[in-house]
Amino acid sequence: MQEYKYESELVKQELFNDKRLSKRKMFDSRDISIELNTLQNANGSAILTLGKTKVVAGIKIMPETPYPDTPDEGSISVGIELSPMSDPNFGSGPPSEDSIELSRVVDRSIRESKGLDFKKLCIKEGEKIWCVYIDIYIINNDGNLFDACELCALAALKCAKIPKLDDEFKVVKEEYDGHLELLKNPILFTFAKIGDKIVLDPDLIEECASDARFSVAITEDKNLVAIQKGLHGAFKIDEVKNMASTAIKNYDDVFLKFNKILKSKSAH
């Protein structure tokens, strides 16, 4: 993305004075908006914008065979497509290492928070369990796909319905049997290091200017449930402590805004 090399310099210049090009404060996230449950074939769906980044998550809850070592537990599966429609630099083809990293970080944020009780997703021990498939497509890339995707997945999960099964464990079309229960609300916070300054929720230009990335998922218990450091740069221990504490401090505010939007769209 060489055409952003110069705007990146501008970003660094502003940061010298602790100012961001986007006029946000150093640890302010962009505004979010959510369209909930508009996709009828999905069991739950959300279209989320974080600033100008736009992503869509669709949930399909399907009956599957359990893993042999966990015969009475359901599972989740997260797949994120860096769709070439969202950025001129994304190619079509099999998942890249970027899309795999993204998928796995979002997966860990949800899985490790223990928000889903996998034992409740058991249909018949040893035979059938529910697998919650979370598929996410990027529609427009304006930076920080990590936080956008995780929040979008969370929104979609919160309105997801469990399909009804017949006596042969086949899904009955267009009939449902209750909602998916989410016991925790993990929210991912991603920071970018630009020179020696750190900002929360980088947009595309800030991402291009950054050398290192740090993501941490926080739940309402103010615990950390998933962490990922990315890119070639490095963080000092104090910087890591600072980012973790900033994420914890910001949780309530972000969750409040998120919940308000969900309630206004009458989610479960």
């Binding site: 074939n41 399907m62 497509e81 769709s83 070439p84 079509s92 498939y133 598929d135």
Partner: peptide, 17 residues
């Protein structure tokens, strides 16, 4: 032209490939 259906766009989840 690349026509792709998202896994959640159909009643039975479709493989993204």
């Amino acid at each position: 032209y690349y026509y792709r259906m998202a896994p959640f766009s159909v009643p039975d989840r479709k493989n993204p490939k």
